[in-house]
Write a protein that binds this DNA or RNA. Structure first.
Length: 491
RNA sequence: CGGGGCGUGGCUCAGCCUGGUAGAGCACUCGGUUCGGGACCGAGGGGUCGGUGGUUCAAAUCCACUCGCCCCGACCA
């Protein structure tokens, strides 16, 4: 019975004509396959021989570098400095903060042997650096005058995940992790919120990705934190993605690692800590937010190439079209535009159009003999595919305007999508009906009780993403599951 | 870790049910004509069929074990 079904499925597949070109899976058909296809065909990343580990290819890394720059600049502008802490952490240090151990132990990679000797004390490969940094802070802090400590590090961490996906969840990933120590609780809370604001700004301004900022529930917070805040984005398949987190650690780690200082009133106090991070997952978020059936669409601010120039090879184009293309490149580069001139003669223009569209370049500039006659070029927007003949005069200005316009319209489009996929209800039946249909955010009142949260999750698979600072529309006053009011929730 | 699916040139797969010369499209190499939306013609190169063992005159195909990958759950950034 089973076998029969299999063979008929195979027969069906055979009837499909083989595609002329290896196409990417349409986004609407299978979002997950589409995602993987785009990542690999656009040469962003690839699977490595090491299980769960990803190789970030130059084009993908260039995107990450732009995100890094945008973040690093803002992290420094808010008074932080960069430093580096070790990759290995002794087992005994990890064990000091109970919640933290519980949260991370299942995901930790161990080093038990060095050279030809078994280690006396096992080492872990950092899954995050609170532990090692807390240890160092305890040495560095004596007085209230030593505070605050505002340190960030760019690093890789390892978490032994069972299921991995390129950029979204890999065994090893790159990130930025900020770790701060403060004199007062209020200061720590302000810092936690400030950095979440930085993340929101980077997501929205640089990645053109609207996010919901808010407080995580107790069950979803970081292991060892007092409070966790997050930014949550809605992907093109209607599913939420946590794009960044900021934790108020209270005095938990200070107590575990004995980070004390003598306060202004001469008393001995524990510092108040925060930590916050975003990862290479942002690259994945970018892809899933903006991409379409033709592949990637990059917002200009994080596009390694903002403009690709495709010269049309006609007649003796090498003597006529190409020099003009080079001049244009020069002009755009001098105006701070990132430009790629694709003068390879082994590919046809049509091939290049498709190729660069797949790789998400926001703006294409075509130039051929006809354009030169007319003193113009043809600009083609990746987001709308609009073809815009543009005079050679004042070209750089027009290009920059258009890049800004693409950045803005990608954000608007993503925000519109999110609005279209956000519903508000205070009825549990309605809530369940919504989730059975189109996925997306649902805004609903919740009492704050973990048992309700767990029940909802068990019933519908929906998770509380966070408790938004700005709830879109407060729907009703009573918890959709039991009774009392408290907060609003998303998907 | 539970449920399902799949391992055959670089990629996507056919061939397996019913054992008997290892295939297609794309990609790649060379030559030529092309080029404003994934060009065409001709000639080539490349696979111990995931691994191990078994059945057989004969195994990609049947059997057992094993390794790996993908999807859906549980866990996470």
């Amino acid at each position: 019975m089973k076998q029969k079904k299999e063979s008929s499925e195979k027969a069906d597949r055979t009837d499909q004509p083989a595609p002329l070109v290896t196409e990417i899976t349409p986004r609407s058909q299978d979002f997950s396959r589409w995602y993987t296809d785009v990542v690999r065909r656009a040469e962003l990343a690839d699977y490595s021989p090491v299980k769960g580990c990803m190789v970030i290819r130059p084009y993908g890394y260039a995107i990450w570098e732009l995100i890094q720059q945008a973040l690093d600049q803002r992290i420094k502008a808010t008074g932080h400095v960069n430093a580096y802490f070790p990759l290995f952490i002794p087992e005994s240090l990890l064990m000091k903060e109970a919640d933290h151990v519980q949260g991370f132990a299942p995901q930790v990679a161990w080093v038990t042997r060095g050279g030809d000797e078994d280690l006396e004390e096992k080492l872990i490969v950092r899954p995050t650096s609170e532990v090692i940094i807390g240890t160092m802070y305890s040495k560095w802090v004596q007085s209230w005058r030593d505070l605050p400590i505002l340190i960030n590090q760019w690093a890789n961490v390892v978490r032994w995940e069972k299921v991995t996906r390129l950029f979204l969840r890999t065994t090893e990933f790159l990130w930025q992790e900020g770790h701060t120590a403060h004199e007062t609780e209020e200061e720590a809370e302000a810092e936690t919120r400030r950095m979440l604001g930085v993340y929101k700004e980077v997501a929205e301004v640089e990645l053109a990705m609207p996010v919901v900022d808010g407080l995580k529930t107790e069950s979803e917070k970081f292991a060892g934190a007092v409070r966790t805040y997050s930014i949550e984005a809605l992907m093109g398949d209607g599913r939420a993605l946590q794009a960044g987190t900021s934790h108020n650690l209270g005095q938990n780690f200070a107590k575990a690692f004995d980070v004390t200082f003598q306060a202004r009133d001469k008393s001995l106090q524990y510092v108040w800590g925060t930590s916050w991070g975003v990862t290479t997952r942002l690259v994945g978020a970018l892809i899933m937010t903006h991409g379409d059936d033709s592949g990637l669409i990059l917002p200009p601010r994080v596009a390694p190439y903002q403009v690709v120039i495709v010269p049309i090879p006609r007649g003796n184009w090498q003597e006529t079209v190409l020099p003009r293309a080079r001049t244009i490149r020069q002009e755009l580069v001098s105006q701070g535009v990132r430009v790629q001139l694709d003068d390879r003669d082994m590919y046809t223009p049509g091939w290049k159009f498709a190729e660069w569209e797949m790789r998400g370049v926001p703006l294409r500039l075509e130039i051929g003999p006809k354009d030169i006659e007319k003193g113009q070029v043809l600009l083609v927007r990746r987001d709308t595919r609009e073809k815009i003949p543009t005079p050679m005069e004042g070209l750089a200005g027009r290009v920059r305007e258009m890049l800004d316009s693409i950045q803005q319209s990608l954000f608007d489009r993503a925000r519109q999508f999110r609005e279209d996929h956000t519903t508000s209800t205070d009825s549990y039946d309605e809530f369940k009906t919504i989730l059975e249909g189109r996925p997306g955010f649902v805004v609903s009142p919740w009492c704050g009780d973990e048992t309700c949260e767990a029940q909802i999750k068990a019933d519908t698979q929906a998770t509380i993403r966070n408790l938004p600072f700005d709830a879109p529309q407060p729907a009703g006053r009573n918890c959709i599951k039991c009774g009392r009011p408290a907060v609003t929730t998303a998907y």
